[in-house]
Amino acid sequence: MYKSQQPIPDEYIVMSEQERDERIRTIKADLGSKLVILGHHYQRDEVIRYADYRGDSLKLAQLAAQEKKAEYIVFCGVHFMAETADMLTSSEQKVILPDLGAGCPMADMAELGDVEVCWNLLTTQYTQDIIPVTYVNSSAEVKAFCGRNGGMTCTSSNAPQIFTQLLGNGKSILFLPDEHLGRNTGLKWGLHDQDILLWNRENLEEVELPKEAPKLILWDGYCTVHQKFEPQQVDEVRKKYPGIKVIVHPECSHAVVEKADLSGSTDFIIRQISEAPAGSIWAVGTEINLVHRLAQENPDKKIVSLNENTCRCVMMNRISQPHLLWALDNLNKGEVVNQITVDEKITADAIMALNRMLDLSK
């Protein structure tokens, strides 16, 4: 589990936004190629404006690994993302998370001990091949677990390819930690409800194992943000905006994905809207910071949130302009704060899981 963030000095809170902006830009210039700032798409505008790269978690970690001259990788995201960056970069590079409290509730829903209990029960019950697959939105420990047990990671983009490779070869899948990405991908592949078992991590007595191994065993984790979108909101937005296109992230429930026109990864959503014709109208079911940014960057289209009352990703929004400045200020003084490091053995096993994903999704 990640550590708690200690309060930062008041001076960073009370200074004006303009002064913080000037100081951040000055430090970036001073550190030059020694510093790379990564900004996840869900970051607030006051932070992502300083990012050298924007993207999803794995893409950002891969970009960081290419920045061989950078001594400091400041990841404006959440804990598991910084872990992945640390695993993919060299031992000389230091990965910093501006607020140690920026975690991911969904990743935290799959704790290693609970996953091992599930795995032991499944492998004791069944002789069929079960492959553990974890969404990259998971801890380094869970990625390493999958690596050690012949499994792999996946992204929301390549999950369909991974499922095709495994299910098509007669394997069963234990999918961690997001029930909804797993269910949406499995049903799209051609599975039926009876092929899928939902694993209750908090009450094993409710998990009734069938005689034959299910084709897909889903961990009952979820994204708290994407669960704010509901099927009736799709109906409501269609009534309000005739001709609107609805696009959602596959972390939404299957009922929402089924009603939407399109579903896909964050990059898919951005690409679809960017390439859409002028004058088109879109309702987007994903984190509100990104939706607002899409509206700003595509003024020739009308873009609204599928749920205008949805909250921001609370954990992602822990990364603030004051926290970023505080972290950079310390780096400029030669002091590294909030460094994220992953044990070498965990890294080696997790990299196996990542590499298997890359091999299967080519």
Rank of each mutant, 00 (worst) to 15 (best):
N332A: 15
W199Q: 12
L358G: 00
T266L: 12
C223Q: 03
I340D: 00
V237S: 01
V74M: 03
I196V: 15
V257A: 12
G186Y: 10
H192C: 10
Y126M: 07
C223M: 07
L294V: 08
V248F: 13
S16D: 10
S57K: 01
P7S: 10
C76L: 06
C313R: 00
C76I: 05
A327M: 06
Q233N: 04
R201I: 07
T224A: 09
T164G: 13
A255D: 13
A102H: 09
Q233R: 00
L100T: 11
Y241T: 09
L121C: 11
H41Q: 12
E344G: 03
D129K: 14
K215I: 02
R25C: 10
I73K: 06
Q128Y: 05
K171V: 14
N200A: 11
C104A: 05
C223N: 03
L209C: 04
A65C: 13
N307M: 02
P132Q: 01
R201W: 08
K94N: 06
N158V: 07
G77N: 07
G243Q: 15
M106H: 08
T347Q: 15
G55E: 08
S90I: 05
H180E: 14
S320P: 14
L360E: 07
S91W: 09
Q232A: 11
I319S: 05
D178G: 04
A102D: 08
E287K: 12
F163P: 00
G55A: 04
G221F: 03
G151E: 13
L63M: 15
E67F: 08
M1K: 10
C76P: 05
A65Y: 12
S16G: 10
A51C: 14
Q125I: 02
Q339W: 11
R293S: 09
I270D: 01
E46P: 02
L294A: 12
A327G: 09
E46I: 07
N184E: 13
A159F: 15
L97S: 13
E111F: 06
Q62K: 13
L328Y: 03
K245C: 13
D329N: 14
D349C: 08
K69T: 08
I48D: 06
E236Q: 15
I281C: 12
G103C: 15
E83A: 10
Y135I: 11
A295R: 14
S90A: 13
L88F: 01
T26N: 12
P98V: 07
G186L: 11
P299W: 12
R44S: 11
V304C: 06
E208S: 10
L121R: 11
Y72M: 09
F80P: 02
R356L: 08
I303A: 03
I8E: 03
E205F: 11
N330A: 10
V336N: 12
S253Q: 14
A65I: 10
A70C: 11
F268R: 08
E46S: 07
D195L: 03
T224E: 00
I340M: 08
V47D: 01
T127E: 09
W189D: 02
D56R: 04
I281E: 10
G39W: 05
L187W: 09
D193N: 15
R312W: 07
L306S: 00
A260W: 03
K69Q: 14
P250R: 13
A276G: 15
R183S: 14
L63R: 10
V225H: 01
G285R: 05
S156C: 14
E11M: 14
K69S: 10
T286H: 06
K69V: 02
